[in-house]
């Protein structure tokens, strides 16, 4: 079941990229998403253009795009319940190590129409091909996409809008100008989001570009979060004092005797 991971090879892909004939120019509508008290999810827009140069084969316009958005990485424990002694308890578990907390894959057509299976796997196109490292006993490995833990993990993340794959989300406005929207759910993790745009033609990668945006807490939210993290004791004292104050205030306001 388990397919060992050629991590070194995966890291080397960038260097194996073919000679550039096209260049990608991209930009997101907002590089700094701020989480304010009334934040309830947001949608970013990614714009881009394919710029041809003299090395571009003439008349090539059959471009395909895959946009992958990776949220901040974290460890996620997935547990499976089983019936033991008549009650349902967590028995088996797998830990997913340093996997993206948010993962979105957008393209202009289904992955199979963009590149052959081996290219899809090598370029990690689509959630089924994205590397999700698990700790399996003492081993660290990704597994086949049909593994029950991996598929349950992806399904649960999708249900929360944190993982998504849409194969018609990228639209070409002209043969070289494209756009896609990046929906961010309300419970989006704070941190840096890497956006990777890969351009394909005739089943091969011909160019890629990277950009990023940050989701940050500002003002009061950041103040509270920092206080809780860095000054736990004072924060606790203040919360307790707040509790006593509101209890006291209520007993004054509603005093009858």
């Amino acid at each position: 079941m388990i397919r060992a991971l050629p991590i070194i090879a995966a890291l080397g892909i960038g260097m194996l990229a073919p000679a550039r004939a096209e260049q990608l120019i991209v930009s997101v509508s907002n590089h700094r998403v701020t989480v304010t008290p009334n934040y309830a999810g947001e949608e970013l827009v990614l714009f881009g253009a394919v710029e041809k140069d003299d090395k571009t084969p003439p008349g090539r316009n059959n471009y395909n795009l895959v946009v992958t958005v990776n949220g901040p990485r974290t460890d996620l424990m997935t547990r499976r319940k089983e019936r033991r002694f008549g009650i349902w308890i967590n028995t088996d578990s797998r830990q997913f190590l340093q996997v993206p907390s948010y993962l979105a894959v957008f393209s202009n057509r289904p992955m199979d129409a963009i590149a052959p299976a081996d290219v899809q796997r090598r370029q990690q196109l689509g959630i089924n091909n994205v590397l999700l490292t698990q700790r399996v006993g003492t081993d660290y490995a990704d597994v086949v996409a049909t593994d029950p833990f991996r598929s349950a993990f992806v399904r649960l993340r999708k249900e929360h809008g944190l993982y998504r794959e849409e194969t018609s989300a990228v639209t070409f406005l002209t043969p070289t100008l494209f756009r896609t929207s990046i929906p961010l759910p309300a419970e989006v993790p704070i941190g840096t989001y890497d956006v990777e745009i890969k351009l394909f033609a005739d089943g091969a990668l011909i160019s890629k570009a990277e950009t990023a945006f940050d989701i940050v807490k500002i003002g009061f939210e950041q103040f509270v979060a920092n206080a809780a993290r860095n000054h736990g004791f004072i924060y606790g004292l203040l919360t307790a004092a707040m509790a006593l104050m509101s209890g006291w205030a209520a007993s004054i306001v509603f005093r009858r005797d």
């Binding site: 974290t74 996620l76 499976r80 319940k81 349902w88 349950a152």
Partner: peptide, 20 residues
């Protein structure tokens, strides 16, 4: 909740782990 078969047998929990 303990006795009835849960609608989803799987649960995910964030165990932290900041990127090295």
């Amino acid at each position: 909740e303990l006795v009835v078969r849960p609608t989803d047998l799987f649960t995910i929990r964030d165990t932290g782990g900041v990127a090295p």
